[in-house]
Amino acid sequence: MTILVTGAAGFIGAYVCRELRRRGEAFVGLDNFNDYYDPRLKRDRGAALCADADIRALDLTDRDGLAALFDETAPDRVIHLAAQAGVRYSLQNPHAYVDSNLVGFVNLLELCRHRGVAHLAYASSSSVYGDSAKPPFSEDQRIDRPRSLYAATKAANELMAHTYAHLYGLRATGLRFFTVYGPWGRPDMAPLLFSRAVLSGRPIDVFNHGKMRRDFTFIDDIVAGVLGALDHPPQDDPPHRVFNLGNHTPVELERFIAVIEEAAGKKAEKVYKPMQPGDMVETMADTARAQAAFGFEPATSIETGLPQVVAWCRDYFGDNA
């Protein structure tokens, strides 16, 4: 009984692999180690969180390579976390999102279908709510007005998974992540960007003039949600469900920065700017469905989580983070 974890060297993927190892689960990972951000961070992350794990260098668009991996390992469950991430980068390099998030996802769905995978748990995003969003975001709200190509590909993933559940009975669970942060996080996201800048005395760009609220969700809470969902495959007809995984507690951007300042022992030099294309003003997860289905109870506040990020940045990047 083997679990396949895609994006295993990524932020969420590496922590999921660590928890699977703690649970005594057999798993194999794959990652393409692309250069969207420094691949060295991905390798260091894997070594720190899940040393000696079996993680193969493989791209989701490599249909033959992916098929060979399925034939070799015969996974009974798949945790699909690999994707081209980032809202703003999708404005610069749209083809990367089509290749990884659409073509790659179809390749994975086809193999799950033909190789008899019992359950596919895959990453979606709070970005899918787009212009239809009304906080708190519930899974029953519309997702047909995305604000970025990244969001559009994630909404498409949900539709595609639903189709495979309807046509072929593939059990699939979509997980809408809300701004995940923690040590070893992605360097393109605000928690690390701001922490590193404050530590080194560089200015930070504060978009929409600070008038933003985010549902920041600590990595440990997200991992608990991923594995909780994996352990409870859908019994619906068709067997496809979607869950919000968020903290249900949106934080003002200015408060978020203040907590980083407190942890760093330094004041931030803030440069206020207009709203960025593709961004959302506020995110807030309604997590009642996940709580009812598998007891999802996020418990980590930014006052607890952000100091861990700042400490990790200081340790990993040094004083001039």
Rank of each mutant, 00 (worst) to 15 (best):
Gly265Lys: 07
Thr283Phe: 07
Ala224Leu: 06
Ala263Met: 04
Val206Thr: 05
Tyr89His: 14
His95Leu: 11
Arg214Asp: 00
Pro233Ile: 11
Thr287Asn: 15
Asp319Phe: 00
Arg202Gly: 02
Gly46Ala: 11
Ala165His: 12
Phe105Ala: 06
Met1Leu: 02
Tyr122Glu: 04
Arg241Ala: 14
Asp319Gly: 11
Arg196Ser: 14
Arg202Ile: 01
Gly65Pro: 10
Asn244Phe: 07
Val271Ser: 11
Val251Ser: 09
Ala8Trp: 02
Tyr181Lys: 06
Asp144Val: 10
Gln92Leu: 13
Arg145Asp: 14
Pro187Gly: 06
Tyr122Gly: 04
Gly86Met: 10
Pro39Asp: 12
Gly246His: 10
Asp231Ser: 12
Ile260Gln: 08
Leu306Val: 14
Glu252Met: 04
Asn247Lys: 05
Met284His: 14
His162Arg: 13
Arg45Thr: 06
Arg171Pro: 02
Leu170Asp: 00
Leu175Asp: 01
Ala268Ile: 07
Ala311Ser: 15
Arg113Trp: 10
Phe194Ile: 04
Asp62Gln: 02
His209Pro: 00
Val242Cys: 04
Pro183Thr: 09
Leu49Tyr: 06
Asn34Gln: 01
Ala83Leu: 07
Val271Arg: 15
Asp188Leu: 13
Tyr168Glu: 08
Thr217Cys: 11
Val128Asn: 12
Gly210Ser: 04
Thr61Ser: 14
His119Gly: 05
His119Asp: 05
Asp236His: 02
Leu159Tyr: 10
Phe194Val: 04
Val206Tyr: 02
Asn208Gln: 10
Arg43Ile: 11
Arg142Asp: 14
Asp64Thr: 13
Tyr168Phe: 15
Ala14Arg: 02
Cys50Gly: 01
Ile257His: 01
Val16Cys: 05
Arg22Gln: 14
Phe105Pro: 01
Thr249Glu: 12
Arg176Gln: 03
